[in-house]
């Protein structure tokens, strides 16, 4: 399902750094989602041009040794299931 997928945030979803709480957020009408850990950094790479393997490769480069190949596609799938990624 992730083949050729170039994830991008849905139009109603805005990714924002919350300077008061020091955390990344997704802002939607009627909803705030607090992004934990590097979830915000992963979503920042979802620009509608990179495919999932490109995103994984970039994160693997930034975080050597982290299990990104397993974790990131699953995370992106969950966010898509929520309707926040297209």
């Amino acid at each position: 399902m992730t083949a050729r997928w170039r994830p991008v945030l849905a139009p109603a979803v805005h990714l924002r750094y919350d300077r008061v709480r020091g955390t990344d957020l997704l802002l939607l009408p009627e909803r705030v989602v607090v992004l934990k850990g590097s979830a915000g950094d992963v979503l920042r790479l979802c620009n509608g041009e990179r495919e999932v393997p490109d995103i994984v490769a970039e994160l693997a480069r930034r975080h050597p040794g982290a299990p990104v190949a397993d974790e990131v596609p699953a995370f992106l799938g969950r966010i898509r299931a929520e309707g926040w990624l297209r």
Binding site: E30, V34, L35, G37, S38, L59, R78
Partner: peptide, 24 residues
Amino acid sequence: MNTLSPPSGACDPAMASPRSPGSP
């Protein structure tokens, strides 16, 4: 007139060092 419900957390990929969400 409705208001925002408490923020929900999104699951984080494991390479993250978990930070606590600023929840109410």
